[in-house]
């Protein structure tokens, strides 16, 4: 018996999975073992990678989609959703990831961009996409291209929260600005933001982004995660911060608990004790402009 009202890959189904991830932590993993540690710690999803951003930064060269074998091993290892990254504009990597059964594609500035003019046309896919942004206009451009979820870019692989904070505040400030405009100012605002006017109008009317917005790029501690939640994130991505730390299992669980109880300093204090060493971290001015991942994409 088939039902003619049945539809797959609708916007509601795509944004709906992101809604289910809210209040949770998505963790970068490079192996089935790491994926199991993440699931066991309470991750809501894992990001399957060949190298975490800190190692991509250290190694240099061109960073690409992970080997399908690694992605499949991770899919087989866990029951939670599996995400994977494709290069900006590399729609064939995205097609490959969709064929592997990945649940979400991250069109990510962590990898080396494949197209300097166009991002992937995400409407072409059944599975949903998440994209990075530094400001409202960039977020709305990605949504116009079909992204069903956005995240701050931050500065990946640094263990330094400052850029994620900057991007989250930028998005929030610009939303507040758009809300305060009068109707006739919206077209000009759309021009200034470089975003479609119907999406700017939506933000004006609803006072928020049309899709779920996570924080990413530099989260290394439970307090970092709670900071991003208090600044209005719907959840957090932790890249290098877990598996580049001294005791990944304990730190992962602590970040999960701090993300849920982000408004409860006593709980954040409790879970922050005795976590072992955090990842070392990099100060942003020490990174040459050309090596800043957040500058990739537009």
């Amino acid at each position: 018996m088939s039902d003619s009202s049945k539809e797959i890959g609708t916007l509601r189904v795509k944004t709906g999975l992101a809604e289910m991830l809210k209040g949770g932590v998505i963790m970068d993993v490079v192996s089935a073992d790491q994926a199991r540690i993440a699931e066991d710690a309470g991750a809501v999803a894992v990001m399957a990678l060949e190298r975490v951003p800190a190692d991509i930064r250290a190694t240099g060269g061109v960073a690409r989609m992970a080997d399908p074998t690694i992605v499949e091993q991770i899919i087989d290892a866990v029951s939670i959703p599996v995400m994977a990254k494709c290069r900006i504009g590399h729609f064939v990597e995205a097609q490959v990831l969709e064929s592997l059964g990945v649940d979400y594609v991250d069109e990510s500035e962590v990898l080396t961009p494949a197209d300097e003019q166009y991002h992937v046309n995400k409407w072409d896919f059944t599975i949903p996409f998440v994209c990075g942004c530094r400001n409202l206009g960039e977020g709305l451009r990605r949504i116009a291209e079909g992204a069903a979820m956005v995240r701050t870019k931050g500065e990946p692989g640094t263990g330094n929260i400052v850029e994620a904070v900057r991007h989250m505040r930028q998005v929030s400030d610009e939303i507040a600005w758009v809300v305060g405009l009068s109707e006739e100012q919206l077209f000009d605002a759309a021009k200034e933001l470089g975003a479609p006017s119907e999406l700017v109008k939506w933000v004006h009317e609803n006072g928020k982004l049309p899709v779920v917005n996570f924080a990413a790029g530099g989260i290394a501690t439970p307090a970092d995660a709670a900071l991003m939640m208090q600044l209005g994130s719907d959840g957090v991505f932790v890249g290098s911060g877990i598996f580049k730390s001294g005791d990944p299992a304990v730190r992962a669980k602590a970040i999960v608990e701090a993300t849920t109880h982000f408004e409860d300093p006593e709980i954040i204090a409790k879970v922050s004790r005795n976590l072992g060493e955090a990842m070392v971290g990099i100060n942003i001015p020490d990174i040459p402009q050309a090596e800043r991942m957040q500058e990739r994409g537009w």
């Binding site: 039902d3 009202s5 049945k6 539809e7 797959i8 890959g9 609708t10 509601r12 189904v13 709906g16 999975l17 029951s79 959703p81 969709e98 059964g101 649940d103 979400y104 059944t126 599975i127 949903p128």
Partner: peptide, 13 residues
């Protein structure tokens, strides 16, 4: 996950 992964997610009356 009986109905499958995200690629199989759906809506229906």
């Amino acid at each position: 996950n009986a109905f499958g992964r995200q690629v199989d997610s759906f809506e229906v009356d």
